[in-house]
Design a binder for these strands. Structure first.
Lengths: 208, 208
DNA sequence: GCTATATATGGCACTGAGTTTCAGAAGAGA
DNA sequence: TCTCTTCTGAAACTCAGTGCCATATATAGC
């Protein structure tokens, strides 16, 4: 089905704003770029900019919704033939593979985000949706919604904690490692528990 | 040691602003209260308000630094006689006991925070410092800083994920449960791993 | 192709957060 | 009391975000 001219124009305008903003953010930083400048660079009015993006920060995370949907779909793939934990695990590893394939774009985005405390906070907020997706999948395995399944929320929180740490590691080492392998190891630790680590052992330093 | 008049005045002014802001936030909501109104209610000028609090949101989290320090101290108590994991665990449970003792104040604060997406994001950011404290303790047990100990950061992320889920549960059920017990159960799950749950089992629903 | 209607845009004015500057008030110290 | 330092209040300013309305442009019906 073809999109109408109106729809195509909207998509083009949106993309023009994203591109203009990205150019300016890289050149002058997020805080150093005003909404007016982005609008001018994209050749639209200020009003139009705010019509396409509810807030200036939103233009930094333009594909957030698509990524969440992708995660949901990837986990959904394994819905029937795997345990709940494994369907989440495999979905996350697929997501990791996808992230590997767009690492350049992710690294650019992260550079912009880490220049502003504001954006860092917003990033955390967006990422938190991953946890919801995971807890929904776990709760669904028992025929519940995540709202009514505390154990599922707890498990999802634990898994999400590992994801955050893995992603942080990957990004802070310049996306050079194999994210799928990092993810595999991280989630395995969640599965077997911290009792398997030497953090649960008295070590030499404790007696120094 | 006595504080100078100047210091005492500053403390009083700061407290007056916190109290005024809290009153207004409860009465009119966070978004419905302007910085001007808070300043007027506290009988200081707008400039003074922003001198005491870098941003309007900061006045919502006035004791954040103290709480982080308390967590650090509580974990530090168990530094020598326990395994790293247990010193973190016991410190967190002490913190839970403290939270139980100020539940009214926490519940009020949470009510304000949950009226604004802005504040929710900021809350996440503040809470993230807990993770740093935990990872520092774990890394220290091996004579490293958390910066150079990925395993410690990963473990801390997992523990923190559980903390968030536990706190969320506690708050959303009106702080009526025993937070220490919730915490004990949550962290035990982290210790033994999700392999102990039925999320790692194929269940009936998978065959429906 | 022409007209009526729906929708996107641009311009403008307004509110509120946060910053900067500066003059003056008030505490600290001799 | 006099000086030095710090805190405060007032005003002007920038920028994000909202609301309103007139205008331009796409779509649909004829």
């Amino acid at each position: 089905m073809e999109l109408s001219l109106r729809e195509r124009k909207k998509i083009k305008a949106r993309q023009a704003i994203i591109d203009a903003a990205t150019r300016l953010f890289i050149k002058k930083g997020y805080d150093g770029t005003t909404a007016d400048e982005i609008a001018a660079e994209a050749e639209v009015s200020r009003s139009t900019f705010f019509r396409y993006f509810k807030a200036k920060e939103m233009v930094v995370f333009p594909y957030q919704d698509e990524r969440i949907q992708m995660l949901r779909d990837l986990i959904g793939q394994y819905e029937t033939e795997q345990t709940p934990f494994d369907s989440v695990r495999l979905g996350l590893l697929d997501m990791a593979a996808y992230f590997m394939s767009i690492k350049k774009e992710l690294a650019d985005q992260r550079k912009i985000i880490h220049e502003s405390l504001h954006l860092l906070a917003r990033q955390l907020e967006y990422d938190a949706v991953w946890e919801v997706v995971i807890s929904e999948r776990l709760a669904a395995s028992r025929g519940k919604s995540s709202r009514e399944d505390y154990e599922a929320r707890l498990a999802a929180g634990i898994i999400f904690g590992a994801i955050e740490a893995v992603l942080y590691e990957w990004f802070s080492k310049g996306c050079k490692q194999d994210l799928v392998q990092l993810g595999r190891d991280g989630i395995e630790l969640v599965r077997v528990g911290l009792a398997s680590t030497d953090f649960t052992q008295l070590n030499d330093r404790s007696f120094e």
